[in-house]
Design a protein around this nucleic acid. Structure first.
Lengths: 200, 200
DNA sequence: TGTACATCAGTGAACGCGCGTTCACTGATGTAC
DNA sequence: TGTACATCAGTGAACGCGCGTTCACTGATGTAC
């Protein structure tokens, strides 16, 4: 029964603010990685609004989930940019980005699952560069290229898969005696980067 | 409306056969990675049995899901043993096991998700060695040790995470232009094994 | 040999609940004349 | 300046459905005497 405090109606011309509130509410509900599947009525309840009001902004829950995911992809991209700005050496910058990715996933487990653990309901003819999360992957490729790797796209593919495994398994196996996160990430990336030709 | 053909009642003393049929039916429903959440009534329907009959063998769906997962963990362990028996050289054997793990996950996407993509409803005081999937992880550690790695548990942790990422992302991003599976696995494992100290 | 009884392997009706979706409605705020 | 009307930002009742769970029940098969 997580009712929001009573809303007052938005002023004229600002009806879109409800859209934000609904995304916010859905995001709150999805934060719990073990949350039951999102329901339209549940979201409306959490947003403090009539069930039917959700229809004013979203055709169905799928497009709402997509909007939530989009929001968090932007958030993650911004986070990665911030981290990159704070680090000078390209290789350290790349590593810091990888660690930040994992920390984001482990702090926001429910959101991470929405973003990366099932196919998002995107139209089937969407080009890769507009696929959800593309901007995040692109940042990884660029960081790896700047770190001097001779096959940045290939290495990025490997490293992304490694990082995702690190996050995903720690979410699904919280009781496994994992090594400390920073150590694991540094170790894994160190091995995968540029074939580890004695660079480390 | 996927009704099974009409059942006849099991003979006396063989009531446990329904238990198997229910697990079978649930497994069938869970094979689809995009299947809606398992429902008790759905399983009963698929097993061709009254909804209440599920209670004769399972207290709730959680324990049914656990039974399904257990079954597939055994199946995967056996598969890995079979693969190991067919390969002589320790390093090749290890690599073949890794590839088999990924192929299993990609062929049985729904089951893989149940097994590895969320915490299974196991009692919180279960020791690691009885955690679901432990036997699979143990096989990986052993295979890595036999391949001559000097830190088999540590390397196994890294490789497991890598393999899981490979499978999980290919399930959730089916339209991403992934490299061929065997190539990716060989490449990743080659880098991670024993610090890749020029062994390859 | 018969027969009463216990057990086993399920069934079927009924309940209350939350869900997605529809439809007509409300009431404040702006705009045209 | 007044007033009719349009628009905007939602609401509330109602529907049919599938769900988990309860409860008393059925009917075949074995067992005791």
């Amino acid at each position: 029964m997580e009712m929001a405090t009573a809303r007052q109606r938005n002023p004229r011309g600002q009806g879109d603010r409800l859209r934000d509130d609904i995304i916010e509410a859905a995001s709150r509900l999805l934060a719990d990685p073990d949350a039951p599947p999102l329901s339209l009525r549940g979201v409306a309840r959490a947003a403090g609004v009539a069930a039917t009001s959700v229809y004013l902004h979203f055709a169905d829950i799928d497009s709402l989930v997509l909007a939530v995911a989009d929001r968090h992809f932007s958030e993650l991209a911004k986070l990665l940019d911030d981290v990159a700005d704070e680090t000078a050496a390209p290789r350290d910058r790349m590593l810091a980005g990888c660690l930040a990715y994992c920390e984001f996933g482990l702090k926001q487990q429910g959101h991470y699952k929405i973003m990366f653990e099932n196919p998002l309901p995107v139209p089937p003819d969407t080009p890769q560069e507009q696929a959800p999360g593309w901007s995040v992957f692109k940042r990884l490729v660029d960081a790896i290229a700047e770190a001097g790797d001779r096959d940045a796209p290939g290495t990025a593919e490997l490293i992304w898969q490694q990082l995702h495994g690190i996050v995903s398994l720690r979410i699904s196996r919280p009781r496994f005696p994992w090594k400390p996160l920073a150590e694991t990430v540094a170790d894994a990336v160190g091995h995968l980067l540029d074939g580890n030709r004695g660079l480390k």
